[in-house]
Simulated scan of single mutants.
Amino acid sequence: MTTENRIEPRQLGSIGPSVFPLALGCMGMSGMYGATDDNESIATIHAALETGVTLLDTGDFYGSGHNEILIGHALKDRRDKALLSVKFGALRSPDGGWTGFDGRPAAVKNFVAYSLNRLGVDHIDIYRPARLDPQVPIEDTIGAIADLIKAGYVRYIGLSEVGVDTIRRAHAVHPISDLQIEYSLISRSPETEIFPVLQELGIGVTAYGVLSRGLLSGSIPSTQGDFRANLPRFSGDNLAQNQRLVEELKQIAQEKGVRPSQLAIAWVLAKSKNIVPVIGARKQTQLAESLAAVSVNLSPADLTRIEEVIPQDAIAGSRYDQHQMQMLDSEK
């Protein structure tokens, strides 16, 4: 089934590319949620492109480079069908741990060289620091990416999980296409201060975590290596309370004849045409389920009812652990 001729694309901000309303997030294809199958992952990427999806989102640190190599294999004969969004800067140790962040200009240009090689491409469409490096002025990091644009290695600059001050400072150096940030029915803090500034500056949104890492679809950690087991929202009494909220979402979804995951994605799509949800599908079945959300129409009354049934302050637990939350510029 091809939907690209009847689905209206969305532009990432005033200067960014035009993309399918949903993007495919590839992080889960490199072990963050447990064991994966490279063949199924590649088949899922191919299915997404064939259905009209244009934007693939990855990070050079996903699987310590595995994710980029995987995408490179998937795009070997179809690079012209995809736009690549790549995050950089997170540092990994040989045992898979996390050792910090590097946003220095020299590091940026080093990171992009390895990404281009692993992906097997001559340019990256959107390049973005995954977090703010507190030791490096954002102007320096963005200036380095601007140099890469001049050299032809990058097309657009994006940001990820940064706050209002950082957004303004970055945009003053070079126009920003979009901010990638967690946003969902139960993670709505960007609405207060960040989204108004993005609208003012003409910056789009690529929203990840729209299913709150599976919480809104009823998925819970069940395999070894699933990082969600350490997240507050999936722990102890928090999980029990949050699952009760999800039951309310299931009831509305049942009334509309859709799955809770589709309703949650449709809610994000309906909030603003400036938002492109990033769907973390690892399998073709998950992809197909998520893509169906594009056809779910929600009225203003529907949005109000959903938000009344699941108010933002009802969720138990933060989206990351305390240490990670303190590192997020977007939460300051």
Score class of each variant (00 low, 15 high):
L132V: 08
S41H: 05
R233L: 04
Q254I: 04
L12N: 04
A106Y: 06
R79S: 00
V210G: 09
S219I: 09
I42Q: 03
C26M: 06
Q251M: 11
Q199V: 11
L215F: 11
V136T: 15
S212D: 14
D237G: 10
S295W: 11
D60G: 10
F101A: 01
P277E: 06
R128V: 15
S14W: 08
A270V: 12
T51C: 15
G28N: 00
G25K: 04
T99G: 06
V309C: 09
V19Y: 00
A151E: 15
G65Q: 11
T99N: 05
P105E: 03
P94A: 02
Q322L: 13
K109Y: 12
T36V: 12
R118V: 05
A113F: 10
L198F: 02
E182F: 09
W267M: 01
A146C: 07
P311S: 02
D38S: 04
Y183S: 01
Y33C: 02
A151L: 12
N117W: 08
L231H: 04
G163W: 00
K81H: 03
E289P: 10
A288T: 15
D226S: 04
A293L: 14
S290A: 15
V246I: 08
V294A: 07
V246K: 04
L49A: 11
Q322M: 14
L12Q: 11
L216F: 13
V112D: 02
G52S: 13
G96V: 01
P277V: 07
G28I: 00
A281L: 04
N39A: 13
L91H: 06
L303D: 07
A47S: 12
S41P: 05
I15P: 13
V19R: 00
M32S: 11
W98L: 10
D77C: 00
T44Y: 04
E139K: 12
R155S: 13
S318D: 14
F227P: 10
S187A: 13
L116A: 06
W267Y: 14
L12M: 12
E247K: 12
L185Y: 03
S219H: 11
V112F: 03
N238W: 01
A35S: 15
V205K: 05
I203R: 07
P134H: 03
F61V: 11
D77V: 00
D60R: 08
E4W: 15
P21M: 15
D77P: 00
N39F: 07
L159M: 11
E68K: 10
V294E: 03
P232Y: 06
I7F: 12
A207V: 09
R305V: 01
E182D: 10
Q286P: 05
R282Y: 03
N230W: 06
G59V: 05
Q180M: 12
Y62P: 11
G317H: 04
H46G: 02
E182K: 02
M325G: 10
L185K: 00
S295L: 08
I203V: 13
E182V: 07
T58Y: 14
T58R: 13
R79L: 00
